[in-house]
Amino acid sequence: MENKSSPVESVDRALLLLMRMRDQGPLSVKAAAEQLDVAPSTAHRLLTALTFRGFAAQSHDRTYRPGPEISGHPQPFLSTQTLGEHSQAALVRLQGTVGETVQVMVLNGGNIQFVDGVESARNLRVARRIGDMMPAFVSSGGKAMLAQLPNAELEEIYRSGLQSWPTGKITTLASLRRSMTKIRRDGFGTSFEETEQGVVGLGVSINDADGRPVAAVTTATPSIRFDRSAMPLHVEALQLAAAEIMEKLRGV
């Protein structure tokens, strides 16, 4: 059989990488470069493009695997109404456990959008937000979701830089990447008066079967009564709520 060359070399290389991940498992940038006989920078650009379109996904060990578009687990469209309806029972239980305002939110580009929540019954409490948007990197839930994304995707989201926010503490892409490393290790995000003065937030990402963030659930506590020793209890309650919400969303 005649050995024909591809008319579009970059497309052919990307397809070869997809076949390699499908047949032989996760692929590092170095292995991809060796497989294609190209420079690592070229392999990295191809893998980044595949990741951006959902055909590949980067794991925390920096290897690449088939993404949701070809793994059989594409992420369905999820309306904020559906998320709110399927989160309400878990939010009520979470609020009863932690005694503070709790909320659920989604990523919207480089921002978060608040979907629903349950307010604390205490006189001094953080108000529930619905529909409001703010930069993801100032919110505990936003950070928790961003931490599920590979650095290449973060760079694409914030390619124009991080917008300023009056109480924000993360101001550069480099500092964002550093904070993501800690959140990936800890399994939750924090916001110490970064969304606004006087509010401390803890957040956990709600992930789909491919580890992609679908939403996040958070607690919001007035800083004057925030107790660091209660953090493990709050994080455990958040994780239980996230698992409950994801279980319900799987049936959507």
Results as ranks from 00 to 15, higher is better:
Ala31His: 13
Leu107Ile: 13
Val235Ala: 01
Thr51Met: 08
Arg177Lys: 13
Arg177Gln: 11
Val118Gln: 01
Pro232His: 03
Phe226Leu: 07
Arg93Asp: 15
Val126Gln: 00
Gly142Ser: 02
Phe137Val: 10
Ala209Ile: 14
Gly168Lys: 04
Gly168Ile: 00
Met246Glu: 11
Pro66Leu: 04
Ser205Trp: 09
Val11Ala: 12
Ser223Ile: 00
Met21His: 12
Ser87Phe: 12
Arg129Thr: 05
Gly141Leu: 12
Thr51Ser: 11
Pro135Ser: 01
Met133Ile: 00
Gly67Glu: 13
Ala237Glu: 02
Arg228Lys: 07
Gly203Ala: 12
Val106Trp: 00
Arg228Glu: 10
Thr219Lys: 08
Arg184Met: 05
Met1Ala: 14
Lys169Pro: 13
Pro40Asn: 04
His73Phe: 13
Arg225Asp: 06
Phe114Cys: 03
Ala32Ile: 00
Ala31Glu: 07
Phe114Ala: 09
Ala90Lys: 00
Gly109Val: 02
Ala57Val: 12
Gly109Tyr: 00
Arg184Ile: 13
Ala209Gly: 14
Gly131Pro: 13
Ile157Leu: 13
Arg178Gly: 13
Thr171Arg: 15
Met246Leu: 05
Gly198Cys: 06
Asp227Ile: 00
Val38Asp: 10
Val38Thr: 11
Phe226His: 10
Gly142Val: 02
Phe52Asp: 15
His73Ala: 13
Leu146Gln: 04
Thr172Asp: 00
Arg53Lys: 15
His73Lys: 15
Lys169Tyr: 04
Gln88Asp: 03
Ser59Gln: 09
Leu50Lys: 09
Ala43Asn: 04
Ile170Thr: 07
Arg178Gln: 15
Ile170Cys: 02
Arg125Ser: 07
Met180Ile: 05
Thr181Asn: 01
Val106Thr: 08
Met134Tyr: 08
Ser71Leu: 01
Leu149Gly: 09
Met105Tyr: 00
Gly203Met: 11
Lys248Gly: 10
Leu146Ile: 03
Gly99Asp: 06
Ala39Gly: 14
Pro222Tyr: 02
Gln113Asp: 04
Ala242Gln: 13
Thr97Gln: 14
Arg128Asn: 09
Ala144Phe: 11
Gln24Glu: 08
Thr219Ile: 02
Val252Glu: 07
Ala144Pro: 08
Met231Phe: 01
Asn123Arg: 11
Arg122Lys: 10
Met19Pro: 05
Met246Lys: 03
Ser41Ile: 09
Ala215His: 08
Ser229Asp: 14
Ala230Gln: 07
Met1Asn: 08
Ser79Met: 11
Ser120Thr: 09
Ala90Ile: 05
Leu149Gln: 02
Ser120His: 08
Leu17Phe: 04
Leu16Gln: 06
Ala147Tyr: 06
Ser71Thr: 03
Asp208Arg: 10
Tyr158Ala: 08
Val104Thr: 09
Ser10Met: 05
Pro74Glu: 11
Arg62Ala: 12
Ser10Trp: 05
Gln163Met: 14
Pro222Ile: 02
Pro76Thr: 09
Gly168Thr: 06
Glu34Ser: 03
Val235Lys: 10
Asp61Thr: 05
Phe52Val: 10
Arg178Lys: 07
Val252Asp: 02
Glu247Arg: 03
Ala174Val: 08
Met134Val: 05
Glu69Thr: 15
Val29Cys: 05
Met145Gly: 07
Met134Ile: 01
Lys182Ala: 03
Asp186Trp: 06
Pro222Asp: 04
His60Leu: 09
Phe55Lys: 15
Leu149Ala: 03
Val102Gln: 14
Ala39Asp: 15
Gly198His: 11
Arg22Ser: 15
Arg212Phe: 11
Gly141Arg: 10
Ala43Thr: 07
Glu236Asn: 15
Val38Ile: 12
Glu119Asp: 04
Thr218Ala: 05
Arg22Ile: 02
